[in-house]
């Protein structure tokens, strides 16, 4: 399942997509430690798979929480995407 966490508002689209079919294979769960804003948590989803998801209280503020990793001028690789061994994470903006 592709799970899109985030939102659209008047200023744009802000989604973090986690491909849970890839994520369920993971043993390292490196995203949890990689994210400086602690967005990722590992929980059981509705189909009893243990996968990464974006913490409930962070879903409405991803644009703000991710801002430090996304400076305007120089855009380094995002730590969550770089650390994910299965390339399961994407950002829409």
């Amino acid at each position: 399942m592709k799970a899109n966490y985030g939102y659209m508002d008047g200023s744009g689209d802000y989604f973090i997509t986690i491909d849970t079919d890839k994520c369920v294979e993971c043993e390292t769960r490196a995203c949890v430690a990689a994210c400086p804003a602690n967005l990722f948590v590992i929980e059981e989803d509705d189909w009893d798979d243990l996968v990464a998801l974006i913490a409930q209280d962070k879903r409405k503020s991803v644009k703000y929480d991710c801002a430090p990793c996304k400076p305007v001028t120089d855009r380094p690789p995002l730590p969550c995407m770089a650390e994910c061994p299965f390339d399961a994470i994407e950002h829409s903006w």
């Binding site: 399942m1 939102y7 659209m8 508002d9 989604f15 189909w47 409405k60």
Partner: peptide, 15 residues
């Protein structure tokens, strides 16, 4: 009826 892709917008009142 199993979800393959989803997106929820509950941040913004538009839509």
């Amino acid at each position: 009826g199993k979800v393959t892709n989803f997106l929820m917008n509950d941040k913004c009142a538009a839509g």
